[in-house]
Design a protein around this nucleic acid. Structure first.
Lengths: 335, 335
DNA sequence: TTAATTTACGCAAACGATTGCGTAAAATAG
DNA sequence: CTATTTTACGCAATCGTTTGCGTAAATTAA
């Protein structure tokens, strides 16, 4: 009844006294197989619950019908939504999506990229971590022509596909809003220096300050890598020395660190200091006092990135026209 | 320089005038290959950046060195932590982890399970969605002997590997705590009826009430599937008709829905109604008023589940001794 | 020096599916 | 009734690796 071992084409061919090739063709409804035979094969195959071995198929066809997406942390709502957008598009086109997380370790990231290449994923969606040179090296060393679309954090050159949100604009608006609330000493909790999003957000922040006639104080700008320690040290130092009246946080994690740090301050500062930060966290709006949020169109970013990727996969090495999509982010929960 | 096409064994064999088998063996340091030859092959291979094609390897070896984990939603911190635990163990043993999400759709879940089987994952970690009969059917129909470990939501029979937390105990403690706060009309926002976690948590809730001499009012017990609508309808109905003085929520999502619903009530109810719910959300402790949290040892659950799975994978069809691990959850943020 | 053993490698089958090509039988054309 | 085309199938190579087995040459034993 229930076969111990998955049934394969040769099992069917033996049982039906047909050749393997005939069975294979019959199952894909080839015109060169008699209607009668097709019926027999198909019904028998479904009776014994035949499922083609995807490994064998992949080896033959030289494609795997799946794409990989590498993110720092799946629990981060921003990335989770991106993944959802990717899945939405990919599944509709018969592709599966395999999710990897780097936990912000470049070493892990490199290993994963290598593995993705060796497992012959048909394409890769990547938001490279801090140290770009290493990653670029790997991306080159994997000789395979692996189509890649970058998102969120992207390389600076123009010879790749990229999907981002308008970080400059978002940072400008967020900072401007804080200024409109009467804030003047606005600290900027930035991500790792040197990567695209940090640069653009810092630029937007600075431009907004200058536009409002406020000078940019380097002391109020703090870069943190992804260790909690660094962020906490920066926050403590800022509070001790400069006591900002507002924070602009550049990532989900930093937003919540800021929020927590501020909540621990003695009143009335705790409720006076305003915070606006990049976050797609679902329940951010439940916080009191409010955490104003710059929400990125993550789902759409994922959708677009997946479309770009599947597009380049399908028309293989044809016209190499690189796409660069930039979507607007919105400022929410400002009242 | 940079090869267009990944280099394969036969490329090396031609270049070095050796047979493919010799190259293969030389690369895995076989004793039946001369030291001299090995050096030549290995150095050449690394020069041209040879990476074995995992598809071909998998086909030959009949294993893929990866395991799959299927979760409802990766953005849910509970599941994200489980995944992290799984990755921790699996990566250490040379396995990759492939993550799939069902978005609480049984249809998607079944498709994914089928795909996992066809792609020949070496094992599967599964927290089956609502409708267990369908899923069981599929699990049977995939003739392949695919090792499976269930976690969180698990089948009732004893012929499978299971990892759960002590839902009964956790629910009992949570409810008891609410009673100790002086609450008497404690509503229970339960997950889908019929699945293991709902049953156990309801049992713990009921036992705690009875133990305190409070009768169990069926009107205060509401089951919600995973549509937001149902939960909101239940909450509105409860507020309109019964005005509970506390809520015990059975999942991450329900906890936050409760919290939001209660916050929207007019004072003083908004700050009087207490909520305790299952959640592993990182920033739950930032909420004011507090959301008391039943925190599951998700990372450990993932680790244990992965260990059980890799264990059964390694000793293949040998002694089939099924494991059932139950870990304690802790009540936090109660002040 | 001859026989037995070891060393170092190549041949070919296998994993499961796909597909170009060849070819009997059947159908159609002339 | 023969010649040509079509139909319906089988053979065998292929995708990239792995591995059992066979075998020359080199080494050791007797």
């Amino acid at each position: 009844m229930d076969q111990e071992r998955p049934v394969k084409l040769s099992d069917i061919s033996k049982a039906l006294n047909l050749s393997v090739s005939t069975v294979s063709r019959a199952l894909k409804d080839s015109h060169e197989i008699g209607e009668e035979t097709k019926k027999i094969v198909q019904s028998y195959a479904s009776k014994v619950n035949y499922r083609p071995n995807l490994i064998a198929q992949s080896l033959k066809e030289m494609n795997t019908r799946y794409i990989a997406i590498i993110v720092p942390e799946i629990s981060n709502s921003f990335f989770a939504e991106i993944v959802n957008g990717v899945e939405f598009v990919a599944n509709n086109q018969g592709y599966h999506v395999v999710i990897y997380q780097t936990h912000d370790s470049t070493e892990r990231e490199i290993n994963i990229i290598r593995d993705v290449a060796r497992r012959k994923a048909d394409g890769l969606l990547l938001s490279p971590s801090t140290n770009q040179t290493d990653v670029n090296e790997v991306m080159k060393s994997i000789g395979a022509k692996l189509p890649v679309v970058y998102f969120d954090r992207v390389p600076s050159d123009n010879y790749c596909h990229k999907v981002v949100c308008d970080n400059y604009q978002a940072a400008f608006e967020a900072t401007t809003w804080l200024i409109q609330q009467g804030k003047k000493r606005i600290a900027h909790m930035a991500g790792p220096s040197g990567i695209s999003i940090s640069i653009e957000r810092l630029a937007g922040y600075s431009a907004a300050l200058l536009h409002a006639g406020i000078s940019v104080d380097p002391n109020l700008i703090r870069y943190s890598n992804f260790l909690a320690r660094e962020a906490w040290d920066n926050l403590r130092d800022l509070e001790e020395k400069y006591q900002p009246d507002a924070y602009f946080a550049s990532s989900d994690r930093l937003s919540f660190y800021c929020y927590e740090a501020v909540q621990k301050l003695p009143e009335p500062r705790a409720s006076e200091v305003k915070i606006v930060g990049f976050t797609n966290a679902h329940f951010a709006h439940l916080l009191r006092p409010k955490l104003s949020a710059i929400v990125q169109p993550a789902f759409d970013m994922g959708k677009i990135a997946a479309e770009m990727l599947l597009n380049t996969i399908s028309k293989k090495h044809k016209d190499i026209e690189y796409g660069f999509i930039k979507l607007p982010a919105v400022l929410k929960n400002t009242e």
